[in-house]
Design a protein around this nucleic acid. Structure first.
Length: 609
DNA sequence: GCCGTTTTCGGCCCGACTGTTTTCAGTCG
């Protein structure tokens, strides 16, 4: 039996939470949901945690106490969760797919089950089309229509978009909104601002005085395909390209609080609110508030339709204009958006131990680029010029090697010819005022099934910088795959392992590796692990980067450029490195060409001491 | 069910929007 992943375990707990909501059991749903969230964001597998420290270690997981720890133990030992089975028997409904329909939550699922016996989306769609849903008390024609639209939308998009696809759109949208009449400032928040690998939707906060006028301009944008909701301060739309966007308008003094709230992550926000609460304060998207001395009770919960509430009645505004002052008032140092994932950033901020993250302008070189010598689109010279325009001082030319026949991979002779060409170009550039760019020779050497390389050591020794990568046999068993990669790392001429796991986000799974053993070998041999910045690779992921940082293993951030436009993707690699808590010192291509070459001339195992 | 600088009881993040119904429940982020 395949062991359950954290995601699957988290999902079971989430379903239990929904079941208890359906049963109207108080507080248990929240407890299960919190445990579910915590487990989903764990970096270590529940199984490993249990094997490492038993029940005690399980109970140390946020939101997991004695009860849920026992469930987990049961699940790990028997593969079953009696409480879940029991609840599922009572409500034999597909919570997973039903709750993915926008607008359908626990209470709706319960009502649909009780009144119409609906168990899944197909039955819901049928019932809605027959007009049965609108006949239920509390439901109407609009709700029924919304459910049908929700099902259609769910099918049309599904899944998350790559950061690389969304970020340019988000920036363009931000610029457009900044130019709206009545808008003073705007900022993209949400998972885009945290630079997650994949993005659900675009969240934008704007400061403005006439919110309704701003919303009217927003929904009138070209490309708007659907309006989910339009209110006085919050509007939610979908563009024709399948990307959803939320716009929220707030007063100027609340900009920082709103930006913080809508940047997330959700669990980070909850932690901040709890810190505020501990101090007897209140944190929401309008600011940080403390109770007014003369008004002991919270009067802000006045009745009336949403939007009529008078914010802050009985509460005194403490902070909210900037995020920095919010964190400061809460006794924390400022936390960069890329770190707000509840992986220890709150504790580090409290103790002033947050890392100085590698900056978006810190890269001086790019150690993986392909040219028209193999499967790249442009010449070495054009790539050099483009790299210079992108602000780089040097690039390594790393065309594919011979086993990759489909790319016209280079053999030893071709590599030697290319080295001559690089020399010639360097001589030419040194005569010109521009571009000031240095070319280094290299290769993306293929790691064969047994871990040997497809270029001889003599040739590798003459190259400035050698990367090796897996391009085949992606499905080897973990042990064999790990040994294969480790053998390549032990080659004294292999400076870097490119895109270690070979994953393609949403398309190809990562190869199976014992990551701790790989990282330990990288440390011992002085092999650098690359963060491939291409949007569908982002390989290493943030978790592995953090492991490298902690182990003192050096990394590079490379574009994997196959054309002159691709140097722009370096930004995504830097974002990924920041999400993995990497500093400038962890990334070797923040060094100058001279310093890097000096390092590369030393024996591998002594280089990074 | 979880949790503790009000720690073994008694709380549990917070607000906007929609639909449906006259004061609120449900969903979402």
């Amino acid at each position: 039996m395949k062991p359950l992943s954290n995601k699957e375990i988290a999902y079971l707990l989430y379903e239990i939470s929904v079941f208890y909501t359906m049963k109207d059991v108080p507080f248990k749903p929240m407890a299960y949901e919190r445990a579910s969230d915590a487990i989903e964001s764990l970096k270590e597998s529940v199984r490993d945690i249990y094997e490492r420290g038993g029940m005690k270690a399980l109970e140390e997981i946020d939101g997991v106490g004695k009860g849920i720890a026992e469930h987990l133990e049961n699940l790990l030992k028997t593969g079953r969760l009696p409480e879940y089975d029991h609840l599922k028997k009572e409500f034999p409904v597909e919570v997973h797919e039903l709750s993915e329909v926008p607008g359908v939550g626990a209470q709706t699922i319960k009502t649909l089950w009780k009144k119409l016996g609906i168990k899944n989306v197909a039955e819901l769609e049928k019932a809605a089309k027959e007009g049965l849903v609108s006949k239920i008390k509390g439901f109407g024609v609009k709700t029924e229509q919304k459910i049908l639209e929700g099902i259609a939308f769910m099918r049309s998009s599904g899944g998350r978009h790559l950061l690389g696809a969304v970020l340019p759109e988000a920036r363009a949208l931000e610029d457009t909104i900044k130019k709206f009449s009545g808008v003073e400032d705007a900022l993209v928040c949400g998972s885009v601002r945290r630079r997650r690998e994949t993005i659900g939707d675009i969240d934008i906060i704007a400061i403005g005085t006439d919110a309704e006028k701003i919303m009217a301009q927003f929904v009138a944008l070209p490309g708007v395909a659907h309006i989910y909701g339009q209110g006085a301060t919050k509007t939610n739309i979908r563009f024709g390209n399948g990307i959803d966007a939320d716009l929220r308008v707030v007063p100027k003094r609340s900009f920082g609080a709103a930006v913080n709230y809508f940047t997330g992550s959700k669990s980070h926000n909850i932690a901040l609110r709890e810190i505020a609460q501990e101090k007897g304060w209140k944190l929401n998207e309008y600011g940080l508030f403390k109770r007014q001395a003369t008004r002991p009770n919270d009067l802000s919960r006045s009745v009336g339709r949403a939007g009529d509430k008078r914010q802050g009645e009985g509460w005194e505004f403490v902070a909210g204009k900037t995020e920095k002052e919010l964190y400061e008032k809460l006794g924390l140092s400022y936390i960069e958006p890329e770190l707000r994932e509840m992986t220890g950033e709150i504790e580090a901020a409290r103790e002033g131990k947050l890392p100085a993250l590698v900056g978006y302008h810190d890269l001086k070189g790019d150690l993986q680029t392909q040219t028209d010598w193999t499967d790249g689109a442009d010449s070495i010279e054009d790539m050099a010029r483009a790299a210079h325009t992108a602000g780089l001082e040097y690039i390594v030319i790393t065309d594919h090697t011979r086993s990759l026949a489909m790319t016209g991979g280079a053999d030893e002779a071709k590599l030697h010819r290319q080295m001559k060409e690089i020399e010639k170009l360097n001589a030419k550039f040194s005569q010109l005022p521009s571009p000031r760019i240095q070319l280094l020779s290299g290769a993306e050497v293929n790691i064969k099934k047994d871990g040997s390389l497809d270029i001889d050591d003599e040739t590798l020794a003459t190259l400035d910088c050698v990367g090796a990568a897996v391009h085949s046999h992606f499905t080897l068993e973990k042990k064999e795959q790990t040994e294969r990669v480790i053998r390549a790392m032990k080659n004294p001429h292999v400076d870097i392992i490119f895109h270690l796991t070979g994953r393609l986000i949403n398309r190809r799974k990562p190869i199976e590796l014992d990551i701790d053993e790989v990282i330990a070998t990288a440390k011992r041999t002085g092999t650098v692990l690359e963060i491939d910045a291409f949007p569908d690779r982002l390989d290493l992921n943030d978790e592995y980067i953090r492991k490298c940082v902690n182990a003192g293993v050096k990394m590079s951030i490379d574009s994997d450029a196959h054309s002159t436009e691709h140097f722009a993707v370096l930004e995504y690699g830097i974002a990924q490195a920041r999400r993995g808590w990497a500093t400038k010192e962890d990334i070797i291509n923040t060094l100058s060409a001279h310093d890097l070459l000096t390092k590369l001339k030393k024996p591998k195992e002594l280089r990074w001491k």
